[in-house]
Design a binder for these strands. Structure first.
Lengths: 64, 64
DNA sequence: TCCTTATGTAAATAAAACTTTACTTTTAGT
DNA sequence: ACTAAAAGTAAAGTTTTATTTACATAAGGA
């Protein structure tokens, strides 16, 4: 499961801490997701996708 | 987090056990998700949505 | 260089997702 | 009514996601 969060953050000029706050998780959680350490929960994926006005499929891709 | 899995299953004539097998989880997991006991992981949500040829947003909705 | 902000990482813990086993209830067919 | 299949449920245990604290590194500006 890959994602484009880092790019979306850059486009919106948000730090990991900014994004973490907006979706109500810890900064380390955002970092871990970006680094591919684990996948977000479905509710968290929804929060992130709504924040960036993208569909979940546009942000996350199941690398088969 | 609500979902329309029960309806989609009916449309595709699949039992909970059938669906569980297709997405490689236990029947109880499908049951629990349908009953709203917990949300699927993001990878599982992807598997289900691809099986039914729907977007994740079409199947799952964050009830506020 | 010094200081600050952002990012990366790690260990311990907590919480949520999922499994396994097993039993009960519902539903539908004959 | 009887039977079989499907659905519901529950407890105990494992795995994965997320938190907290804490420290280390990278990058840039003053």
């Amino acid at each position: 499961m890959k994602n484009t969060i880092k790019v979306l953050r850059a486009e919106h000029d948000l730090t990991q801490a900014d994004l973490a706050e907006k979706v109500a998780v810890s900064r380390q959680t955002i970092n871990a997701i970006e680094k591919g350490k684990f996948d977000p929960s479905l509710p968290l994926a929804f929060k992130i996708s709504r924040l960036f006005n993208k569909s979940i499929e546009e942000i996350f891709t199941a690398e088969e």
